[in-house]
Design a protein around this nucleic acid. Structure first.
Length: 136
DNA sequence: GCCAACGTTGGC
DNA sequence: GCCAACGTTGGC
């Protein structure tokens, strides 16, 4: 499956992710987002989206450990992700909005949901828009 | 179990 | 930095 993970670049940025390689995706405190985390499988790919001023998809990470209890709060879960690649060109929210094939993205309908799924076609479309050579 | 009040998120 | 939209909390 494919996902979009949102992060505030002032809190956790792609630059930091690139340096750490494998990280725990934590601090999810929303039940819908948590439930999506719990359905993730090893090998699932996630776009890394910067909120705030950037509002762009900038990279891809891969799920390397499925959901386990958040050590800070048993009601929530975390997953481990591994840095995969940087996109050649970031894909801005305005581009996503302007693309017919992406009009059903959860990110547009529920702007506050920090973890959301997308299908293969949507994943490939975003890869295409980013001008990145990446094959599944 | 409803819903008003409150807190948070994220686009603009 | 503002504020609309939405999720959560807690009193009843």
């Amino acid at each position: 499956m494919f996902w979009i993970l949102k992060t505030e670049p002032t809190v956790w940025s792609w630059q930091q992710q690139l340096m750490k390689h494998v990280t725990t995706w934590d601090d999810i405190r929303n039940y819908q987002a948590r439930n999506y985390l719990r359905t993730m499988n090893i090998g699932d790919l996630c776009f890394f989206y910067h909120t705030e001023k950037e509002r762009s998809i900038v990279g891809i990470v891969e799920i390397v450990k499925t959901a386990y209890n958040d050590p800070l709060d048993d009601n929530f879960s975390v997953v481990d992700v591994q840095t995969k690649i940087s996109l050649s060109n970031a894909v801005h929210l305005s581009t996503i909005k302007a693309t017919e094939e992406l009009k059903n993205l959860a990110i547009l309908k529920q702007p506050r949901l920090s973890v959301s799924p997308l299908n293969t076609e949507e994943f490939n479309k975003i890869i295409e828009l980013s001008n990145t050579s990446f094959t599944l």
